[in-house]
Design a binder for these strands. Structure first.
Lengths: 193, 193
DNA sequence: GTCTATATACCGATAGAC
DNA sequence: GTCTATCGGTATATAGAC
């Protein structure tokens, strides 16, 4: 009575208890943030008892960290000509298809009062971005430059999110890709001095 | 019975009721963030009744917004040679003396689940930085470039804060000033293309 | 073992007495 | 104006039913 109940959990299956909680939690954390989402609301959306959520996942924060890993989200493609990598990174970050990634990062940043969340942010930046990017950088201080490029992208995402269709977001995406891409490119290319 | 009670509220005076609440609130919001600070704790530190805090300021969020305006904090000096403005902006942002400003901005970003807080962040960026910087920028898209420079600085501050003496923060400040300053400079100088 | 129901302790905010 | 008492909400932990 255990083995063959779920054949393939790719999609469309009515989620079982724990999985229903994880899906509801991810959606609500993305939508309303950590503080704005209660364990009761998650449990209600998943159709389980609130106490079970704590029972299964330990705490609200553990559930948050379990669900916001970004591991199943796409990562930027770092291959291709290095001369235009800056522009392509900006275009990737602002692409409509990456909205979920942006919302996840926003939720993590806004919950970063917790040191566990800050640690998770460092881990995501390092493993999903810096470690891959540093392989493509020549010249001195490659790792520091990769971290600073990550900082640039993080700042852009934050402004994009705070702007809410004003100022920055009102400008055409193409202009931002061109301008901000050039600023990234300075740290991609080996320093001249 | 009203006019001459407080002669000068510059400094050192034992803060009266409302002012004691504002000072305690600012310090605790900077230190522990919005969610980590309770109205009860603020009232306790200020020596007043918790209910009075709500009575005087309306709500916890209104008190937060009233206190986190950055209006009394120093602003970056935008005068001087424009060729080195990028480096000077980075040096200003990371200067030990600007720690309070960084903490205020961090507290605002982490509370930006609220649209009122996002609006305050936009206002601060615009009036304290973009409007002043745009006067020093030549070439097309000056306002957009100023906003993007603000994004770069915001991203650096966020990384600096999340890093916590690891990675980015471990590198020497001078190297960051040089590298990241050059990236800012690309948006300060008029675009070549 | 798995889940239900309940208990504790805190929060922001309010009503109403003084 | 000030403060006591309290309301409805939260997260978390536990006792006990199945």
């Amino acid at each position: 009575m255990s083995d063959d109940r779920r054949v393939e959990t790719t999609e469309t299956a009515p989620p079982t208890g724990r999985e229903a909680v994880e899906r509801a939690a991810l959606e609500m954390f993305e939508e309303q943030g950590y503080a704005g989402t209660s364990v009761r609301a998650i449990a209600g959306a998943a159709g389980v008892d609130p106490a079970l959520v704590i029972r299964w996942f330990g705490s609200k924060e553990e559930l948050f960290l379990r669900v916001l890993t970004l591991t199943e989200k796409p990562v930027p493609d770092l291959s291709g000509p290095r001369e235009t990598l800056g522009e392509r990174l900006v275009a990737f970050a602002l692409a409509p298809g990456q909205r979920d990634v942006r919302r996840d990062l926003t939720a993590l940043v806004r919950a970063s009062d917790s040191s566990s969340v800050r640690s998770r942010l460092r881990q995501i930046t390092r493993t999903l971005f810096v470690e891959r990017l540093v392989e493509r950088l020549d010249g001195p201080n490659a790792e520091l430059r990769a971290h600073l490029i990550a900082s640039q992208l993080g700042g852009l995402l934050q402004s994009w999110d705070v702007a809410e269709d004003q100022n920055v977001a009102a400008a055409s995406r193409d202009r931002i890709v061109s301008l901000y891409g050039a600023a990234l490119q300075v740290l991609i290319d080996p320093p001249v001095k």
